[in-house]
Design a protein around this nucleic acid. Structure first.
Lengths: 205, 205
DNA sequence: TAAAAAAATGACAACTTGTCATATAGAAAA
DNA sequence: TTTTCTATATGACAAGTTGTCATTTTTTTA
């Protein structure tokens, strides 16, 4: 979380820093990013940076939390369009993220994030779907989704299904960003895996 | 990959370095690890380190590749015990890994790895199950697994099922290591997710 | 035993990072 | 409008890091 001092800054100065940070996080992943580069690019003195943020993780997660919140909003709207169809919604979300990857300024930034998707980053990404502080939010999601055709007996199972869908989607995204797989191939693979999840791995005899 | 010079070293000197590295990777995750600490602990001059390894990633993956190879061997033996039952085997593997986590020297080392499980680490872990250079190995796995009761129509689907099972297992492991969840609770959660995967998310109407 | 190749060594330049004493600006009080 | 107090800005600095490379030492080869 940025310190209050940062929030008191003018929008312009805030953006100056944000842009410099995004540029650095596009160049290299978080753990290789250099605060020196960010302040040089933003043209602010070193001491000021530490007046605004704890460290580079702090500014990184400030950016990323915003990004993942946007993805979540997108997901909510996609679910509505699909009348609560969980599977169709994930396929659409997947495609939307792939398309945004092809937008000019995003490519390296997104790639650096996904190829270094560790616990903390994944948790930030996922918590906007349903966690602790957002518990009420999970209910919102739960209300939007059509669970009629889902093979579940409790809300807990619904939670685990979502968890699995998300991790499978993330894994597919990582794979795409790592191998620069064309969109249509990525879509085919992801759809195949979603189908497997739908029908189940086990064939009762 | 270590340089030839390292492999020419006596086993004792190799272990000296390996142990120092493992100690450092137990203290902090890879990206925070310091070569200075490793060489100080091993009592070798700085230049020597670079004679043996490219950088800290190099020695990290030398260790981790060995670790994940051991896990794979374990997995193979577990499958045999379970007569090729994919689901039972994953549950057993999950439990084995949890138990090894409770062994003294391992705890922090394993935790640091799983909480920073990025693409490269996951790929190293996974490749020993079935990838490119080990393609023949996937066939071995494929031969061991009992696919009679699996809901698949091709070897490709089998590959995707394995991929999903692994990523779900990893996600559960990460969760356990992050929250210090007791083994029995972890087992319950993982079993529940495996059951969901078995029966499928979609209820045909 | 002399020459050539391989390995060991540690000082060094070129970076990092986070801190802190000091300077400056802004707001509140007198 | 001064004075006082508080918040912010600043950049030099200590303490650390990394990878390199000229030299020395050891081992092989001829």
């Amino acid at each position: 979380m940025p310190k209050p001092t940062f929030l008191n800054l003018s929008k312009e100065k805030q953006e100056l820093l944000i842009n410099a940070a995004k540029k650095e996080f596009s160049r290299v992943p978080l753990h290789e990013a250099s605060i020196s580069n960010i302040i040089k690019d933003a043209g602010i003195p070193r001491g000021s940076f530490y007046q605004y943020f704890e460290d580079k993780e702090d500014i990184f997660f400030f950016l990323f939390d915003e990004d993942s919140r946007r993805v979540n909003e997108l997901f909510i709207s996609i679910i509505k369009i699909n009348n609560g169809d969980l599977f169709a919604s994930f396929v659409d979300l997947f495609k939307s993220i792939l398309i945004s990857f092809d937008e000019p300024g995003n490519r390296q930034y997104i790639k650096n994030i996904f190829l270094n998707m560790n616990y903390k980053i994944e948790k930030t990404f996922t918590k906007n779907f349903f966690e602790e502080n957002v518990k009420s939010h999970f209910s919102e999601l739960n209300g939007l989704l059509n669970s009629e055709n889902l093979n579940i007996t409790s809300e807990e199972e619904m939670f685990h299904i979502l968890k699995i869908m998300i991790v499978v989607m993330i894994q597919n995204l990582v794979h795409v960003f790592a191998t620069e797989l064309p969109i249509h191939e990525a879509m085919a693979t992801f759809s195949l895996e979603i189908d497997l999840l739908k029908k189940g791995f086990y064939k009762g005899t």
